[in-house]
Structures are given as C-alpha cells and as structure tokens.
Write a protein that binds this DNA or RNA. Sequence first.
RNA 1: GGGCCUGUAGCUCAAUAGGCAGAGCAGCGGACUUUUAAUCCGAAGGUCGUGGGUUCGAUUCCCACCGGGCCCA
Length: 503
Amino acid sequence: MSDEPEIQEPSPDGGLADHPLTAQRLAKHETTLAGEGYPYRFDRTKYAGDLHEAYGSLEPGTETEDRAAVAGRLMAMRRMGKLIFAVLQDTTGRIQLFVDKRTLGDDAFAAFDDLGIGDWVGASGVVITTKKGEVSVRINDFELLSRALRPLPDKWHGLQDTEMRSRRRYVDLMVNDDARRTAMMRARIVSELRRQFEARGYIEVETPVLLNQATGALAKPFQTHHNALEQDMYLRIATELYLKRLVVGGLERVFEIGRIFRNEGVDSTHNPEFTMLESYEAFADYNDIMDMVEEMIRACAIVATGSTEITYQDRTLDLGKPFRRVRMVDLVAQATGEEMDFDRPLDEMRALAEKHGIDVDGTWGHGKIIDQLFEELVADEIWEPTYVLDHPKEISPLAREHRDDPNLTERYELFIAGSEYANAFSELNDPLDQRLRFEQQAAARAEGDDEAHPIDEDYILALEYGLPPTGGLGIGVDRLVMLLTDQHHIREVILFPTLRPEA
RNA sequence: GGGCCUGUAGCUCAAUAGGCAGAGCAGCGGACUUUUAAUCCGAAGGUCGUGGGUUCGAUUCCCACCGGGCCCA
C-alpha cells in the first residue's frame, strides 16, 4: 500500500446498489435483463386525453366493449387486495388502470403488483367507468416497458426545491403539472410565432452563432477559441446585422428564432443564453411593425390561454385593446414636469437627472440622460401594453433618424407590466450615417462607456450595396412566454437554465 | 459586488437554550374487490451541504468554503 490517496473507482451501477431504495429496483432490473428483457416498442391505440374526451361523460359503473391500449409512466398504485387502481401518465394526462385479479389472472396480477411507481407501462383492456365514475381501462394484459431505478418525489407535494427542479427538469416534468403545462405552452407560442411570420411571407433563416466580432447590441459576449483557425471567436449577442445583410441580398422578409448569448448576470429576467426573435421586412417602417406585433401578441395569447385578457402577477391585463402609443420624451416630460428640449444646456439636463437620483456619467448627452430618466421614473410604472416611441438618436445607433426630428429615431419598445417585450425600428439604411453612428459609439467607448457598440466594417460594406427601407423587430421570446404563462422567473420558462456545477 | 435567508431520510417538512434526530409520503412485510393524497397494522430508513474551530460533548455556537433563494447595485 502506498500513501497515495485512494482513487474512488466509479461503481458500475452508478451507486444504485448503495441505497436500499435503489438497490431493490436495481435487483428487479437485473432480473428482468437476465430473463425476457424489456420490449423495444409498444402499440398504443389511445392517449389518456382521448379516453377522457371520448368517455368522460359516461355514467358511473358503465362497461363498454371498446378496447384501448395505453402507455405511460406509472404514477400511483392503490392496492386493494385482489384489486389495484393504478394511474398511468402520458403526454396528454392521466388515465386510471382498473387491475382486477380475476380479469388478469394470478401470475400477471402478482407481476403488476410488483411494479413500482415511476415504471413505464403499456397496458390494454376495455374502457369502463368505476363506481365513482372514473374513466378507466380494465386491463387484461400489460407490459413493463422500462423501469425507474430511482424513486419519484412525493406524490402530493411533487418536487419543490427550486434548484432540483432546474437541475433535474425531467423529474420536475414528471411530477409537477405546472412545469409540463409551461413547457407545452412555450412550444405552442413559438409555433404560433412561426406561423404568423410565415403567413406574412417571411422566411425563416439561420445566421451564425460563432463570430469574429460580436455586434448588433450592447452586451458583453462569451469568448471562445477556434483551434484549427487559431483565433478567438465570440458567441453572438444579437442576430440583427446578419439578418439585415440578408435583406440587402434581396431576401425581403426574414426572421430568425435563435439562441443569443450574453456574458452578464443571472436574475429573474436574465439567463446567459436566451431566445430572441428578430425579423426584418423590406419596404416597411416602424409603424407597420407596430401593427404586426400587436396582432402577433394577441394571436399568441389566444393560443396560450384562449383569450387576449390574461392574468399576470395576480392582475388582469388586456392585450385585446389597441396598444397605447406615446413618445419617450413626452413620458419623461410628464414624469419630471419639465420639457425635454435637446437645445437646453447639458448642465441643466444633468442637474435634472441627478435630482432624480441618477448617477450621471460625464460622457452622456441629452439622449442618454432622457433614456435614464425614462428607466428610472417611467418604465416600471407601465402596466397596460404601451409602445414607447422615438428614442433619442444617441442610444439608438442602428435606428433611422426620425422623419420629423433629427434628435430622435423611428424606434419603439413595447412595455407591458413594467418590462420590455419588443424593440423595433425603421432601420438605418444609409451607410454614411451608419458609419457616423458607429464612430460616435467608438468615441463613447474610448471615453469609457463599455456599453457602446463596436464598429462592424463588413456590415457597412453590405449597406453600401443598398438596404431598402426596412422595418425590423426583436422580441424576447422567454419573456413573452413568461407573460403568457404567468411565470415570474425566466428559469421557469427555460427547460435547462444555466446553473453552477452541482456541489 | 452588498444585505438578508437557506441546505436535516428518496421527496415534503419538523425539532434541538450544546446531551441517543422526528413526522407524512415513497419504499419494505402484512390485511383489504370500487380506490382516486385510499385505509389499517408492523418493521426499517440519517456523513444533519463540506472542512476547520470552541467544547467533556456540535446538526445546534463561531469561521471559511460550496450550492440555492430573495432584495439591492
């Protein structure tokens, strides 16, 4: 023996034999493997949901002659001696199995009795309703399809621990109806968004995630390294500039629903990777995009909840009536009681901001100060859907100058219940102006503003070939799903949120 | 980054002025042919997040670390 610390050999069963609860299940599993093994397929004829829909209105104590083969995870076993009530859960819901020793025979009944909660089971029989009226399948045959070697959480309380619910989402999905419902609703919402764009003649495209330079937004990127090319690369922080290159190329209506990566903090509305929807439409301006977003959000609400009137954070929210449209400068003027005039001396603007508790940076101009006042005084207070219009040019380096006001841009953000859901503009399509804006950003960056956009020369090159007038849009998909599913933390709508390694 | 809270059986939760750690569910043995959080009887099940410290004795007090939550920046 040496003094070296003993190396822990990983046990071949992953530690299952070390705990009585799993050792029993492991032993049964090994017996099955040594014997007839597990089936490779099962012919299901009915989902749980089908049976409840078709037979839910039958009188208690009805016996049909209709055969059904169901399959799912065994979620409950109520043993009554020579009778077992078992509950199978499939993707549509739950169905009770009526397991009668006389129907099934002694051996098969004993085998069913030996099943454990969590096992995957396929069973067939006739549809009946019990004395209490529960739609059930009285089985005369069943197969153990796969065994759960680990026990399920508490049947009544489910899995509560927030961390475990995220780490072992599969368990969360098994036992918590709300987790399943949210995942299903997210799928429906994303599907509806696609349908909406396709109905408008958009095509779905995929632009690169791995880039030499992360541009198109104000955010810190994740850095990685390409070994063969011997160069550092970045994960995208937006899809914007690539999608507009495609419009330059003549793909006049494009959208992308894609994963975006931002190397920033984690909180109730931020995950390092999240899903962004961006779209660009040639010949449209931001007014057209406002109309479109309103229709799409209503469509998604109906798909998710059946109504445009939803409940969010215990308050009702009417997405059905026209969204309010109001300029950012007017909202700030109203909140401060002072007119937002770009000709006003900058010192007065700074003093106003400081009066409202804002820590003013020396690099800020009128536009940035107005934006900060908006964030500080107005944004949280907005409940009803509101398009906040015409952001200052200083904070909108990719948006086109407003046709009526050179200090502003044709841009809007959609605010609902204090949060931002969409950001859109009439796209800046003049390469000369775009270069100027990038240079202003570069100057701000040089003065210490680490939230300034980097310059993207190749994008300017693309603009030099001509971008038509274009209306663009970005929607945070995770947040939209949160809104429509009444979830208040982004981890509840992301199946596998970013976590530290387990302790 | 700061403040507060938190980690106990597979799960959901208790308890301890510092002295053998407790329940429900799940699991195991038994009874039961209409249950649906079934019921009843019985026997089990713990590295109290990890590592230090104080102490005769630490799950409990102190320190550090790890994971998680909420609020603030």
